[in-house]
Simulated assay, not measured.
Amino acid sequence: MFRSIRRVLPVLLLATVALAGCKAAAHQATTALASAAPAPSASVAPSATTPPPAPVKPRVSKAGLTYFFAVAFGADSGDKYNVVTKWFSPQVTVRVHGGNAASRSCLDKVISDFNGLTATTDLKLTTAPADIELHFVPKSKFKSIDPRAGGGDASVSIDWSDLHFITDAIVLVRSNGITEHSRCVLIREELTRGMGFLKSSKTYRDSVFYYDYDAAATKYSAIDKELIRLMYSGVLQVGDDRKAVTGAVTVK
C-alpha cells in the first residue's frame, strides 16, 4: 500500500480567484437587497434579529480523537501536513476503470457505507472525468498510470492546495494475483484514505487504516465511523489544526 500527497499551487491560485469572485457576488447581492428594502419608519423600531444558534459540537471519544490525529494528520509519504486536509465540495465523483463484477459490487457497498456516515460530502459514481479516478489494473501498470505509486498491491495519491482542500485523487487496486477478499479490503481502505486519511496505523487491527491490509477489516469499525463522521460532520474546516479540532468537539 502506498499513500502520496502533493501540493498543487496552480489550483490554489485558481481557487483563490474563484473564492474571491464568490465573495464579491455575495456582497453585491446583499447590498442590492439592502438598498431595495424600505427604510424603517421613524416611529417604529426595527425588530431585533435573533442570532443563529451555536452549532452543536459532535461528541467524540478520547480514543477517537487521538486516532483522528494519528491517521488524518500527515501522510505515509510525500508532503507532510498537520492540519485537516479534505474535500471541500458536497459531492466527490468517482470514475471506475476496469474491475470485475465482485470488485464493483464491493465498491458500491463502500460508497453506500461511507455516505451513510457523512453530513456534508458524498461519494458518487460517474462515467465522466471525475475527482477520484479508480483503476483496477495489474500491478505492473501502476507506474504508467501514477508515477507516484509505490510497490504495494494498492495505492492512493492525492493533490491538494495550500488552502488544504483536496483537488483530485488517483486510486490504484491490483486486479490480479490477490483474492477477492483482499481486493475488497483494499478498495475500502484506499478510497477512504483518498477522503483525507492518509496515514497508516498499527493501533486497531479491525480498522480500515491498519497498516497490514491482510489483517484489516472489510467493514468500518466503530472507531473508523467516528473518524469519518467527524471529518465530514460540518464542524471541521480545511486547515484546522489540533487546537481547532479539539475545540470543535466534545470529548466524551
Rank of each mutant, 00 (worst) to 15 (best):
M1L: 07
M1A: 11
R3K: 15
R3N: 14
S4P: 01
I5N: 14
R7E: 14
R7A: 11
V11Q: 13
T16D: 11
G21P: 01
A24S: 14
A25G: 05
A26M: 08
H27T: 14
Q28V: 09
A29K: 15
T30M: 08
T31F: 09
L33M: 06
A34R: 11
A36Q: 11
A37G: 01
P38I: 05
A39R: 09
A39K: 10
S41L: 10
S41W: 09
S43N: 15
V44P: 05
V44N: 12
A45C: 04
A45Y: 04
A45W: 03
P46N: 15
P51Y: 08
P58M: 00
R59C: 09
V60T: 08
S61F: 03
S61R: 02
K62F: 07
K62Y: 11
L65N: 05
Y67K: 04
F68C: 04
A70W: 10
A72H: 09
A72L: 07
D76R: 06
G78Y: 04
K80N: 08
K80T: 15
Y81M: 08
Y81I: 04
T85R: 11
K86R: 08
W87S: 10
F88T: 10
Q91Y: 03
T93K: 15
V94Q: 06
V96F: 15
H97C: 01
G98R: 02
G98N: 00
N100R: 08
C106A: 08
C106H: 01
D108G: 14
V110W: 02
D113T: 12
D113M: 15
G116S: 04
L117P: 12
T118S: 13
A119W: 02
T120N: 06
T120W: 06
T121E: 06
L125M: 08
A128K: 14
P129H: 04
P129S: 11
D131C: 10
D131L: 04
I132V: 09
E133F: 02
S144I: 02
I145H: 06
P147Q: 04
A149F: 06
S157E: 00
S157L: 00
S157K: 02
D159W: 13
D162C: 13
L163Q: 07
H164T: 06
H164V: 05
I166A: 03
A169E: 02
I170Y: 03
I170P: 00
V171W: 08
L172H: 13
L172D: 13
V173M: 12
S175T: 03
N176L: 01
T179I: 12
T179L: 07
C184E: 10
L186Y: 05
I187E: 05
R188N: 00
L191E: 02
G194S: 09
M195R: 14
G196N: 02
L198I: 01
K199M: 13
K199A: 11
R205M: 14
R205V: 13
S207T: 09
Y210P: 00
A215Q: 10
A215I: 06
A216C: 14
K219H: 10
K225W: 00
K225L: 02
L227W: 05
R229C: 01
R229M: 07
Y232C: 12
Y232S: 04
Q237L: 04
V238M: 12
G239F: 00
G239H: 01
G239V: 03
D241N: 07
V245A: 05
V245E: 11
G247N: 12
V249L: 02
T250E: 10
K252S: 14
K252V: 09
